[in-house]
């Protein structure tokens, strides 16, 4: 497929392992380095409500993110699933949107254990309710 060829730094996978296995992290925000060479970890959060996590997504720039999503399923059981986000607001520069979209497969492939993937261009698409619906549907 047409891809960007942008690489994924090892720290991205390590942080993901910390979240998945170590349960040390609640969320990770990834960005593509300013020279468009590789994906790096921008920020991690050890705890934090969903809203805090969403607030870490910049208004006019793209990011990838992983969140350890807690929810109660339709039968009333408590569940935790890993959700992968591509955050690409319409207001971001076209070059940024292009590179993030063309690199997504590369990073997603390296993060083993993603339950559901969300592609969002505005806050409504990233909202807890929208994601919950996606998680439940799966």
């Amino acid at each position: 497929m047409a891809a960007s060829g942008v690489g994924v730094k090892d720290e991205c996978i390590n942080a993901f392992q910390d979240l998945k296995l170590g349960r040390k992290l609640k969320y990770i925000i990834y960005k593509i380095s300013d020279n468009f060479k590789e994906v790096v970890v921008e920020k991690t959060g050890e705890e934090g409500e969903y809203d805090d996590f969403i607030a870490s997504l910049p208004e006019n720039e793209c990011r990838y993110a992983v969140y350890d999503f807690n929810y109660t399923n339709e039968e009333g059981g408590k569940r935790t699933k890993i959700v992968f986000y591509t955050w690409s607001p319409d207001t971001a520069r076209i070059k940024m949107k292009m590179v993030y979209a063309a690199t997504k497969e590369a990073i997603k492939k390296k993060l083993d254990g993603i339950y559901v993937e969300v592609q969002c261009t505005d806050l409504a698409e990233a909202s807890y309710e929208t994601v919950l619906e996606k998680v439940n549907r799966k």
Binding site: A2, T86, S88, K97, M98, K104
Partner: peptide, 27 residues
């Protein structure tokens, strides 16, 4: 799709000669 920031989407392209609906999934 990519230039709209999406790797998945339905691209409706209507130009001078053809109109097409093309589904794109993960690029």
């Amino acid at each position: 799709a990519f230039s709209s920031g999406r790797s998945t989407g339905l691209i409706l392209d209507s130009g001078g000669g053809t109109t097409s609906a093309v589904p794109v999934s993960d690029g």
